[in-house]
Design a protein around this nucleic acid. Structure first.
Lengths: 315, 315
DNA sequence: CGATATCTTGATATCGGTAACATTGGCTCG
DNA sequence: CGAGCCAATGTTACCGATATCAAGATATCG
């Protein structure tokens, strides 16, 4: 309404700025800034007075402003790759388990975590981030070069390769695969199966270690690529094994999720685990550790009814 | 070195700013800004030329600057409450499953997700956020008032209550509990147990619905508070039930995790599920759906060896 | 042909902080 | 007693974007 737009003196904005505090305290902005940063440049008494004032006025730092000035953001973007056809409720539990640790460590180090999926990249404001963490089991190569352009420090979870231009964190896949093979051999298993997509570098390394160890006994694993990363994919592989009447007495699944699927299918087929077939997974997810018979079908109706989500708004 | 700090013309900074582009193109900053925003105020030809230039120069918007100017951040903070004594690898899978959906929807709506735990609050820059989402099973009341001070729009997952001052989203706990009871009754169960901490509002509501439905048949559930939210806590409750020789033929666990623990303990005790005891969980987590016999002890050595994580740096 | 409407573009101020340099007053010391 | 120094605070300029208002160029019209 009023066309004159001079200094609105009595606006009493939602939250005060440093300038507001400065006016109130009769000092300059910079003194406020210093006081709130606990800088020894400000006399202790003044400092305490100003801090009290800020608290009392409900002052909240404008992080955008600070970041702009300081040219940093104290934020790390975590990019979780999901399968292209991902339904949104089911994430691979593995990256999620990692996410927990990452989030805790970063926040306790004073950093914020910006969570994104690869799909959301375009919109998301990753550019603000001081660094990048890449999780998940996509085709790594493509993704990496996509993010490299951003010129940010980057850490990738997965298999290392010779031409990495950034930090890679992961398990020793080859050694892991070898351990599994050794275990199978010590149990007297002679017909091992590997479930995993060899296009995926980590899987390939696991298989490599696995096969190498088996080769010492002139054994060779049957390699079965699953149709995806889900529990169901693991189950399908086992069913197909049975259908084709292949002989097997040990299964090394490339992930816990696949292993759980495999076990489930085995049990359904009346094959004993671990008596008839040994099964080993990979990832050490808590869920793998707590795996047991499913809530049986007769009970799942009740479960379903109990899980009808609903949103409501209380005002 | 040089004390004169005039316009550093040839700095060729890491990434150009709008001002840089403007200089290169011989136009003003504002025109760049408009062109990149696809504003019709800029002639189509100019617009395309400038966009091409920006792309070619690898221009990246400074989000802090924009947010400062626009006084918003297009960011929603998601606060996941973890148990005080939480070890960092094990999160309750339930909030995590929610997180997946939240993250997808928000990013596809052009928002970023700022992930925090309640512990990390102090450091984290929640203040930047345009809104807040609160997940997890802490004591809600305290947390809410803590965040309310921020004056941000807030959505809370959990049980509703009469004095809510914000949006609450959750399942219909009471109806869920009732459904479970009905199911048990239709199965002819007469000795139901409820596992859940009644201090927690959602649990209380579930129990309420459960007990109310049972009361119609003059039945009353045995209420057993678990020692925490973990699978192990669920198992312990069942063991204690058995130790105390309590008679029970149906268990309603307040969460899938507790249910899995209960089933595990039952199986270990040689009690048949679902023949001897019916078990129902809550949450409908994917892990609950895929629950089966655990990877047996004989195999867990191999698993362990395969899970030795290791970090390495390729440069 | 002059005037007004329209299309493009630019100058300036501003968002809320912080770094660099300037200023003030009190104190030490030769 | 004045030079010199330290402590405490202030002035100014900027970080990189965008809104507002103004202005130049072109087109339209009576």
């Amino acid at each position: 309404m009023s066309p004159t737009r001079k200094k609105p003196t009595v606006v009493a904005a939602a939250t005060p700025t440093m300038a507001d505090l400065a006016r109130l305290a009769g000092v300059s902005k910079i003194t406020i800034s210093r006081a709130l940063a606990d800088s020894p440049l400000v006399a202790r008494k003044t400092r305490e007075r100003l801090q009290a004032l800020a608290h009392q006025q409900g002052y909240r730092l404008n992080v955008s402003a600070r970041n702009l000035r300081l040219r940093r953001s104290k934020t790390v973007a975590v990019i979780v790759e999901m399968q292209p056809s991902s339904n949104r409720t089911m994430w691979d539990p593995y990256p999620l388990a990692l996410l927990g640790g990452i989030s805790q460590e970063l926040t306790s180090a004073g950093y914020s975590v910006l969570l994104t999926t690869r799909q959301g990249i375009a919109n998301a404001t990753i550019q603000t981030a001081d660094g990048l963490i890449l999780l998940g089991q996509g085709e790594r190569g493509k993704a990496e070069s996509q993010y490299e352009r951003l010129g940010l420090p980057m850490v990738v979870w997965g298999a290392e390769s010779t031409d990495d231009r950034h930090v890679v964190v992961g398990s020793d896949n080859q050694q892991g695969g070898a351990s599994v093979a050794a275990r199978f051999l010590s149990l007297g298993r002679r017909h091992p199966v590997f479930i995993g997509n060899v296009e995926h570098p980590e899987m390939a390394q696991r298989l490599h270690g696995f096969a190498a160890e088996l080769a010492k006994q002139q054994l060779e694993p049957t390699v079965m690529p699953p149709a995806g990363w889900t529990l169901e994919a693991g189950a399908k592989v086992v069913r197909s094994l049975a259908r084709r009447k292949l002989k097997f007495d040990a299964i090394f699944a490339g992930s816990d999720l696949l292993a759980m699927g495999a076990i489930r299918a085995l049990v359904e087929l009346g094959i004993g685990v671990p008596n008839d077939v040994s099964v080993v997974g990979y990832d050490n997810t808590p869920h793998g550790a707590g795996f047991l018979p499913p809530l049986p079908a007769s009970n799942r109706i009740g479960r379903k009814a109990a899980c009808c989500w609903r949103a409501r708004c209380s005002r």
